[in-house]
Write a protein that binds this DNA or RNA. Structure first.
Lengths: 236, 236
DNA sequence: TAGTGGTCTAGACCACTGA
DNA sequence: CAGTGGTCTAGACCACTAT
């Protein structure tokens, strides 16, 4: 008597499983049928069911364990993908004109916070670059970057006065691991000078460290203009 | 003469392709061989190659288009997955004792910013909850939440004085879409009172909106204690 | 229209893990 | 040891899109 719906594609199956989770047909914490049973019910290959369930597990809706089977997650963790894009792209996507200005470039010993965060050897020196990103001529963000000297042989010969170090690094130095920390700070001297902010202005600070294997690559702190909001959407 | 390496698994192939991207064997912007060719080279089924390339594309290393083929991405976008976990879990993972205190609960008309952000009808009313999350008795974060009245029939009968609205919602009201906005603000009256902050203190503010289909579910603003850092790691 | 990725199938074997 | 998910295969057809 049941109308035989077609579940031919893994997307269809994903949607149906998600519907059953949402409608509490399958309740949080409970096991759901095994792949072979679902394949039979949906009239498709197990591979197809597998693909759908794998995605749902990846998105945090299901928890899968060998031998134990698949369960509905108790607390679907809100995973949000932040795309830390290149600032030039970010500005151009807003139809703004991008500008870049190098403020400082020197080789020095990084502060301990940087050393510690990246795992640099004490006393090691690195290239320090400070730059301002502009949108339509107005300050958009400033960055304070430390680049390890051994990431590339020709690092010190590169002209960073025209192009952002970030873009050069992305195109020339690979990385395997990254960490992002977001915090809220008051404008310091540098920020006050280049972001037209006064000392009481709260700013968003992004600290990003990258490594290539175990090798530290770069550490950069970014401060955005006052009022900036970091936005990310997610849907399922 | 070439030693024949085995590339049996999609992870192996993923690693090898990534290696070729990193070593600039395949340069940014350039096309890479098509799936069938790679399958032949690696001595495996095309399905396996497909799975590896699909993942690399998902991670931003490759750009794939039908008919055009696969290219190495010009700017591997730094995608970072932020796990916006339940605050209780976050605190317990730090081996702290979690505490929760409801400060206010009323039905009212949300401010325009909330209405606008969620897409609520003008004049609609919603449940407003203000609460403090404590770690070891100290204020950790405060939240100001608006919950749409029609998300559940029994919403107004739920006792939110013991359990956080977030956890109740997660377990009882599904959502399909979420948005997260992060900004830096000065402590307002509410924050000063419950976070022991003075007016000049910069705080991290997270605004999270969720919808179920086109139906708004909830809007919550979270303010973390001074000095809080939101951290996320990613690797490939 | 032709070429590429996207997906499905049916079957097989492997890997982990609880009993 | 047995049951479940994890993955591979070889082949097939479909979907999109530049030409």
């Amino acid at each position: 008597m049941n109308e035989q719906t077609d579940f031919n594609t893994w997307q269809t199956i994903e949607a149906e499983v998600l519907r059953r989770i949402r409608t509490r047909t399958w309740k949080p914490g409970e096991p759901i049928p095994k792949e072979t049973d679902l394949a039979q019910e949906f009239g498709c290959a197990r591979t197809t069911v597998n693909r759908a369930l794998r995605k749902l597990a990846q998105d945090g809706f299901l928890e899968r364990k060998r031998r134990l089977g698949t369960r509905v997650a108790l607390h679907p963790v809100g995973k949000t993908v932040l795309e830390v894009s290149i600032i030039r792209q970010e500005i151009e996507e807003k139809n703004g004109t991008y500008g870049y200005r190098l403020v400082q470039s020197k080789v020095a010993q990084p502060p301990n916070t940087v050393n510690f965060g990246l795992g640099l050897k004490d006393g090691a020196r690195a290239l320090n670059l400070q730059a301002v990103h502009l949108m339509d001529g107005l300050p958009y963000a400033i960055e304070d970057r430390w680049v390890c000297l051994d990431v590339a042989d020709d690092l010190l010969t590169v002209d960073f006065s025209k192009h952002s170090a970030n873009e050069w690094l992305l195109e020339n130095v690979p990385y395997t691991k990254a960490q992002l920390a977001i915090s809220s700070v008051q404008a310091g001297k540098l920020q006050q000078e280049y972001l037209n902010a006064d000392a009481a202005t709260p700013l968003l600070q992004l600290d990003r460290s990258t490594w290539n294997g175990d090798q530290p690559v770069t550490f950069v702190s970014l401060w955005y203009h006052s009022g900036y909001r970091l936005i990310s959407q997610s849907s399922s």
